[in-house]
Every structure is written in structure tokens, then in C-alpha cells.
Design a protein around this nucleic acid. Structure first.
Lengths: 150, 150
DNA sequence: ACTGATTATAAGATAAACTGATCATATACA
DNA sequence: TGTATATGATCAGTTTATCTTATAATCAGT
């Protein structure tokens, strides 16, 4: 019915919709295993902490591409859910380190499993190596533009 | 400079940040040629109309991945800027067709030129064929998941 | 010690999308 | 023909996510 999209003009749209697609698949898988009430921005924090260990709010914000003040709200929400805690950074008395609580540790496991599931769903469509190439290419573009956004 | 932030980002994060990167590059290029005040969601409408011709609000909404009620607001904004107009759809008296005004036509040209520029920036990093493959793969994933989101 | 940068944080504003409801018209079918 | 259901546009109000502005504490370099 509708025309074939012109890829050059549709790149922005493709990226936006793929972002949604991924998050929706993740939502679906998490819901299926009974994990609810944790949105995409919460998950971003969790996955970052899982990869990088206890972190400062400012680093979480940079990774999420938002302001530290905006990240505070997310952290407070996770804190009041008992999933993360803030403790003093011993190396800098201005800073606080955000880290998992034991409950948070349980959740990161679920989350990791779900991201793995979605990855596999994508791999089933594209094949593992094409998917890997695609993600590598995106990350290459991202790193190339890193200096651009400050 | 502080610690390295993102060496191995998760896929979700990569997609989210790439979406931002693209929009930011587009913003930069448009600003450089004096086009301002048109955000990403406005551009999405414009590019869709450029590809598909006069369209219904509901189709614009689907393409943007948002609700028709949300799309209304965007259309109203573009209308009050004199960039699009709504006219009766002759084939369905419930429906209205959203289309460019002459001013809108001028803007779509600028916009096309800028998307071309950003595409070229990316091509300079990855090479044309890798970039093309990457976008093709994303679109494949997107089409595969189309039935999933309704 | 002074200066400027960094970190956390609060408060309020703004943006962008949502839900729910209404109205008009179209389409299917008994 | 008439009635039920679906579609399309649209409004009002709400929620969510982020931004801007501002404050206070601490750090690092001169």
C-alpha cells in the first residue's frame, strides 16, 4: 500500500522507532517474568551500574545523555524503591556513589536476562554476525561524535 | 577529563544515544543555514510528508510512533507557523489531509539537504556501504517487529 | 587564601506524550 | 433501511521526562 521509504531521509525515524522497539521488547519480556514498574530510564541506570560498578550521578547522567539534575530524580525513585543506595565517595567528600542494594542485585540479574533475550530475538532476524556488525557500527558512529556533544 | 564513560554500551543505550546524535547533527546543520525553531518531532512530520505526500493525522502518528491525539498538537504548531495546512479529504469526509504550504515546501528542501549532510557525515566515518548495511539492518529489525506493536 | 571548576541537589518551568471522552462519518450486515 | 461497529479528528486534563535556574559544599591550582 505505502511506498518504500527512502532510507537516507528516514534514518532519524528508523533510529527513533528502533529505540522504541527495543524498549518495548524489553518491557514485554520483563513483564512476562513479573517485573514491572521499572521504565527505560531506570533500566539505563541499572545497566550502567551493572557494567561500571558504583557510580556518581554525573556519570550516570552523561551515559544517559541527560542532565545531572534530571538524573537525581531517577536515582531518588530507585532509592525509594529500595533498589539503589547512595553512599559517600571516600575519595571526594562532595561526591556520592550510587550502588545497588541487595534487592537491586536481584533485579539486575532479571534485566540482564531480558536484554539477552531481546538480543537473541534480533539475532534470530538478522543473524548474529550482522547484528553484531550493526551494533558495532552504531557504536563507532557514536564514539566519532562524542566530542561533538559537550 | 575523568574516567572513560562508555566502552561497551548496551544496545538500548546505543540506540537512544544514536537517536540523539542524529538529531543533534541535524540541528547543527540546520542552525548553520539559519533554520531554527523546528524540533525533531516537527521534522519527522515534514520528512514523512515529503516522502508520502499529503497525509492523514493518523498516518503521521503511526509513522512517528505516537498517538493521533499527540500528533494533533504537532500539526497545530506547524499550522500556526504557516508551514502546513489541513484540507478536506475528498475520498472521506471524516478525514483531513495535511500538506505543505508553499513556505513548507521551501523548508522541506532545507531539511532534505541537511539530512543528506548528516548522512554524508556518517558515511565519512563508516564508509557508504557499511552505513547502508547498518540502516538496512535496522529497518529489517523494525519491519520484523511491526506486528508486535499495536 | 583566592579563584574557578566540580558535585549534588532543590524548585519550578516546559515539553511531549499519555488517557479518556466526544462528535461526525463511514462501513458492514441483518 | 436501519442499526451496530469502526474509523478519524479533536478537546481537555494528566502524567512523565527533561530542562533551567539557583544554592551550597568541596576540590584543585596558583
Amino acid at each position: 500500500m505505502r511506498k518504500e521509504p527512502q532510507l537516507k531521509q528516514g534514518l532519524g525515524q528508523t533510529l527513533m522507532l528502533m529505540t522504541r522497539d527495543f524498549q518495548q521488547r524489553l518491557d514485554n519480556d520483563l513483564s512476562a517474568r513479573g517485573v514491572t514498574g521499572i521504565g527505560a530510564r531506570h533500566r539505563a541506570v541499572f545497566l550502567f551500574l551493572g557494567r561500571n560498578g558504583a557510580s556518581r550521578a554525573v556519570d550516570l547522567a552523561v551515559a544517559a545523555g541527560i542532565r545531572p539534575q534530571s538524573m537525581m530524580k531517577i536515582v531518588h525513585e530507585l532509592e525509594s524503591l529500595g533498589l539503589v543506595e547512595r553512599r559517600q565517595d571516600p575519595s571526594d567528600s562532595r561526591a556520592k556513589l550510587i550502588d545497588f542494594t541487595p534487592q537491586g542485585h536481584a533485579l539486575i540479574d532479571e534485566l540482564s536476562r531480558s536484554t539477552e533475550t531481546v538480543w537473541q530475538q534480533y539475532a534470530d532476524i538478522l543473524g548474529t554476525s550482522s547484528l553484531q556488525d550493526t551494533v558495532d557500527n552504531l557504536n563507532t558512529l557514536l564514539r566519532a561524535g562524542e566530542t561533538l556533544h559537550e
